[in-house]
Write a protein that binds this DNA or RNA. Structure first.
Length: 461
RNA sequence: GUAGUCGUAGCUCAGUUGGUUAGAGCAUCAGAUUGUGAUUCUGAGGGUCGGGGGUUCGAGCCCCCUCGAUUACCCCA
């Protein structure tokens, strides 16, 4: 048997990692709830048909499909073989797979809303924190299993939702100490208007995909790509004018108005941006006209969050407005807007910048030394009293040299050791030593809990 | 999915044009001391060199396949 291992792009999380992740997750959850969002959880797997076709052609390829059970049964074998032939021709087939791991949280949410719209109170605000799976090739900041944190509100066209979501981003990242993030905003309506002016709406995907790369490959290469995608010189020039728009948010909006004069879609997009930007003046929100976002269901304002420049992590969150997501599931006219946090990338960024609070890593507060049969029984009694008082503690599992017990406490990051030997037992006192300072003092048994609780103030927020 | 780099002890790494029984430091464990983490001393364990196949008298080293890590592209959180 080969050495045990885990699938590509997946990870085990040690105690320390879990604690750090929980710190991030709890921060996000708290803010979501502060803004009136309520939790929802959906299954790890969905029916394949629920997911297929929702993320574009590339997205379909990245969905993890689950092989049907019972393919080897005689009554299924012929179907399975036929299905396999179809699969080799690039067609998906329910004969082989009809379930898949969820690819994001938004589509399952839309499926849920479509299934339950009769019972829900609109506007419906939900948040969701769950793992999702993508058959992507792993890279820095890219995993095959990762956690998303989404907040969406459906059943409302009001732009105040966009404003609130922008504030959620700001609040979460501020609480996490990640001050240097950038929140970018754009409107799909502007991109649609641009496409209208440059060869028709069917060119929208070509145009957005090309200009999305501007900061990465530069203007000349973007122009080359546009040319390759079949745009004329005049159209490319127009796009260049659009891309050249710069300055602060107000200046950009003014320039846009001039460029798109008389275009109704653009006028709406500009109005959206003006409203959202106008109501978020005290947080750092930048209108970025090259922002496009890959997912094709967005129709209005779109968001994207980038980590601090120095960590080179790319997007750590994103979202936007969609007019008709549930329409995909036969329930039209429920518009919505949502955002997502990429927890795993946020973790990597915070870790790299050393921004995790130091006091996160506490396990036990104190270690009771085991100095022998009689001593350890007395120590056990004292330990249970501490536990009753809410102080996390443990005792060394067997009698051993003090040297060894000290090292154990050190390695497990336990800040205090409690020594109860013959001497202490007689005086009804425990020797309490703080490892970091090396200081120790004798504390009466009935004062132990209070003594340690006093030094327990920074574990909660 | 395409292409490049890499994979030797728990960790960080040596390992000569292919040549005997694959090494070091740190860590671990045991012993000396024995009611305060140190230091020191003595000793020990630990590797099918990521896995499989091939070339060769002989492979950690060369070739092929595969798994994993990493980087770029594609796409994306």
């Amino acid at each position: 048997m080969s050495k045990p291992s885990i699938p590509q792009g997946t990870r085990d999380f040690s105690a320390e990692t879990v604690q750090k992740r929980n710190y991030i997750l709890n921060t996000i959850r708290t803010v979501f709830e502060l803004y009136g969002f309520q939790p929802l959880e959906t299954p790890a797997m969905e029916k394949l048909e629920t997911l297929m076709g929702k993320y574009g052609e590339e997205g379909d390829k990245l969905i993890f499909k689950i092989l049907n059970n019972g393919l080897a049964e005689p009554q299924n074998a012929d179907k399975a073989k036929a299905g396999f032939d179809k699969l080799l021709q690039g067609k998906n087939t329910a004969d082989l797979t009809e379930r898949a791991l969820k690819y994001d949280l938004t589509i399952p949410f839309a499926r849920y809303v479509a299934m339950n719209h009769g019972q829900l109170t609109f506007p419906f605000k939900r948040y969701q924190i769950q793992p999702v799976w993508r058959a992507d090739k792993p890279q820095r900041g890219r995993y095959r299993e990762f956690t998303q944190c989404d907040a969406d509100v459906v059943g409302s066209n009001a732009l105040v939702n966009e404003v609130e979501l922008a504030f959620i981003y700001h609040t979460v990242f501020t609480k996490l100490g990640l001050k240097d993030y950038t929140l970018k905003i754009n409107s799909r309506k502007l991109l649609a208007a641009l496409a209208e002016l440059c060869g028709g709406t069917d060119k929208m995907m070509d145009i957005t995909m090309a200009i999305d790369k501007l900061d990465k490959i530069g203007l000349e290469k973007v122009k080359a790509e546009l040319e390759q995608r079949g745009l004329t010189a005049a159209q490319i020039e127009r796009i260049e004018t659009y891309l050249a728009i710069s300055g602060n948010n107000d200046a950009r909006l003014t320039a846009l108005e001039k460029l798109f004069e008389g275009n109704d879609i653009a006028a709406k997009g500009i109005e959206e941006l003006r409203t959202v930007a106008g109501r978020t003046k005290n947080i750092n929100l930048q209108i970025d006209l090259t922002l496009a976002r890959g997912l094709n269901y967005y129709t209005g304002v779109i968001f994207e969050v980038k980590g601090p420049e120095q960590v080179k992590m790319g997007s750590i969150g994103g979202g936007g407005r969609y007019d008709d997501l549930t329409g995909l599931f036969g329930v039209p006219d429920i518009p919505g807007v949502g955002i997502s946090f990429g927890v795993d990338r946020i973790y990597d960024v915070i870790e790299e910048l050393g921004l995790f609070p130091a006091e996160l890593q506490l396990g036990s507060k104190a270690l009771f030394f085991n100095l022998g049969e009689a001593e350890s029984q007395l120590a056990f009694e004292q330990m249970q009293l501490l536990r009753d008082a809410g102080v996390a503690c443990e005792m060394f599992h067997e009698q051993a040299k003090m040297d060894k017990q000290f090292k154990y406490a050190d390695k497990k990051n336990i800040p205090y050791v409690i020594i109860i030997g013959e001497r202490e037992a007689g005086e009804k006192k425990a020797m309490l030593k703080e490892l970091k300072t090396g200081k120790q003092e004798a504390v009466a048994f009935d004062e132990l809990a209070a003594y340690l609780q006093l030094r327990n103030t920074k574990t909660t927020k």
